[in-house]
Simulated assay, not measured.
Amino acid sequence: MITLEFARMMARYNHWQNRSLVAAADGLSDAARWQDRGAFFGSIAETLNHVLWDDRIWLARLRGDREIEAQINARHPYTDAPHDWPQFIAERAALDEDILSFTDALTQTDLERAVSWRRGDDEVETNLGFNLAHMFNHQTHHRGQIHAMLTAAGATPEPTDLQMLLLLDTV
């Protein structure tokens, strides 16, 4: 379904975009980050925390680590999320490095490997490549929401165009 090159490029894109959004959000007050802006998850901070939580659970699923998946699922993605901004920044940066390392270590055979996970009472099985594409798509969807909220709050995140990634030497 996807190639190793695509997976690695999207991991780099994820890393770059998260750094951009966090840097833009860093210029806001804590109250402004948590202000309800009418988005699906309410605030910039809540949406950032949702993406952090979801990336963690998908990485655990992709690794086949049911114990970590259960631990993440047991935590509420918002009330148990980091409310301390420096803690969030550190956790996001570490997870992005983990995603980069994970994709760098993948083989084509890994992309075709079956991945099982639970959705409520249902056991779902798809291949790793499909789930990795979903994770990257989900990140992009919510980062678009965050970008819009940041812009409305007067912050200036970097462009989101994937083509810009090709021009950057910093990722």
Rank of each mutant, 00 (worst) to 15 (best):
I57S: 01
L59D: 05
Y78K: 05
R63Y: 12
L59I: 10
A93H: 05
E67K: 12
Q71Y: 11
R61Q: 11
T79K: 14
S101I: 15
L95V: 01
R61S: 13
Q108G: 08
D65F: 05
D80P: 05
I57G: 01
P77M: 09
P86H: 15
L95Y: 04
R56T: 04
Q71R: 15
W58N: 06
F102R: 04
E97Y: 09
W85K: 14
I72A: 02
E97A: 11
D96S: 03
S101M: 09
A90Q: 08
A74V: 10
T109I: 08
T79S: 14
A60F: 00
R75H: 11
I68W: 05
L59R: 06
E91T: 02
T107Q: 10
W58P: 00
L59E: 02
L100F: 00
F88H: 06
D96P: 00
T107W: 12
P86T: 12
Y78N: 10
P77E: 06
D104P: 05
E91H: 05
E67P: 01
A70Q: 03
E91Y: 04
I68M: 09
W58M: 03
E97H: 09
I89C: 10
A70V: 05
P86G: 15
Y78G: 08
E67H: 07
W85L: 12
I72N: 01
H76V: 15
F102L: 02
P82H: 14
L59Y: 02
R63L: 15
H76M: 13
D98F: 07
D98N: 09
I57P: 06
T103N: 04
T107G: 11
T107D: 14
D104H: 11
A105M: 03
D80E: 11
E69R: 02
E67G: 05
R75F: 11
G64V: 05
I99P: 02
Q108T: 13
W85M: 06
T109N: 04
T103I: 04
D55Y: 00
F102V: 03
I68A: 07
R66C: 03
H83K: 15
A94E: 13
E67I: 02
E91C: 00
W85I: 10
R92C: 01
A81E: 07
D104N: 03
D80K: 14
R61F: 05
A93I: 04
A90F: 13
N73E: 07
T79P: 13
T109W: 04
F102K: 11
F88R: 13
D55M: 00
R92L: 01
S101D: 15
A90T: 12
Q108N: 10
W58Y: 15
I57N: 00
I99N: 01
R92V: 00
Q108D: 13
D96E: 08
E91I: 00
